[in-house]
Design a protein around this nucleic acid. Structure first.
Lengths: 192, 192
DNA sequence: ACCTGAACACCGTTCAAGT
DNA sequence: ACCTGAACACCGTTCAAGT
């Protein structure tokens, strides 16, 4: 083992991030440790520190790459309620694909990874189409983002009074978007 | 030091919980350790295990006692939007009083402490008064609870696009409740 | 350049032993 | 009954030393 106990190739950043993301998703972010990650990579724990500053920097990074995997639907022609609904579902899909990491991002201060890739570029135009005036746009977006985030977190945690079946969760999410659409309509586009 | 290094009185559960709650609130739940708690109580770390099963049981307990400190306003005569608004503010007040612990409760699975003392006993009648039909009552309550929870979490984490001043946060919260009231009205009591 | 072993300062928890 | 010291199996991270 001249150049170390590893199979052959030198450790790469991509390899580290990919494995860390996988481990964090499987066992939970809290259970991810530098030593376990090193073991999974078949490498001395200290080797990691040659590629990554520390554990939090590593977690920041995998949160970022997760955020970039938000798949935003393009529905330029459709009316705003349909576009809003589709965006909500895309958002929820990301959360259910990476439950632990997603929760981590949304419950830790200042993880700017929360700026999910391009989310706002799609979100704000939808709200404009709904008649939200420019001076209330950002605030309304923050409010609705908070609404959906909280609903998903509560669903993930089982903080739910009624039925906890997947079907009930789906119904709940639909009811939530219905309520949001109704609220936005009533407040900002009473005509439509 | 015959009976230990402590001042005099034997360790009590109340003392343990009170100190743990204080430490968790000051330094964050994540930073609370059995050893630090013991140091704050001027006691050997192992003594704690004579009163508490383990760390998670202790945290469960202090979450419970926090939940009981929700101060629900009594406004039986008032119209439902006012009552809903007051309940929202009471809920938010608890969250800002115990930010770290509150976030911990609302981001960890199955911490039934989320059943904040008597919240639902007040919440459900308000929704009934708003015209929510019985078969949608629990689901609607869950949805709105999620909405407010998510908004508070995002505010606490600075996951907010616009201004982050306390005044802006207050405005945001008001806007959120306005939207909720508008949504509930439009969906369930179109007449009122 | 890249990797590593030993070491440091922390954890939660068990257990046998003390008073 | 209540407390404790030593020990175990973990952490993240530093640093001097190896190839």
């Amino acid at each position: 083992m001249a150049a170390g106990a590893r199979r052959g190739s030198p450790l790469t950043l991509e390899e580290i991030y990919a494995t860390a993301l996988r481990l964090a998703n499987e066992g939970g972010v809290e259970a991810l440790s530098m030593r376990k990650l090193a073991a999974a990579l078949d490498v001395n724990p200290m080797s990691l520190y040659h590629h990554v500053a520390n554990k939090t920097a590593l977690i920041d990074q995998i949160c970022l790459t997760m955020g970039e995997r938000l798949e935003i639907p393009v529905m330029d022609g459709a009316p705003w309620p349909e576009r809003l609904r589709a965006l909500g579902h895309a958002y929820r899909r990301l959360a259910t694909t990476y439950p632990s990491l997603w929760r981590y991002v949304h419950t830790h201060p200042e993880l700017v990874a929360a700026r999910e890739g391009g989310l706002w570029d799609v979100f704000l135009p939808i709200l404009r189409a709904a008649g939200v005036p420019e001076e209330e746009l950002l605030r309304t977006a923050d409010v609705l983002h908070g609404f959906v985030t909280g609903l998903i977190i509560n669903q993930q945690n089982g903080h739910v009074g009624g039925d906890r079946s997947p079907e009930a969760m789906d119904l709940m999410f639909e009811a939530a978007i219905d309520l949001i659409v109704a609220g936005v309509s009533a407040r900002f586009s009473p005509a439509g």
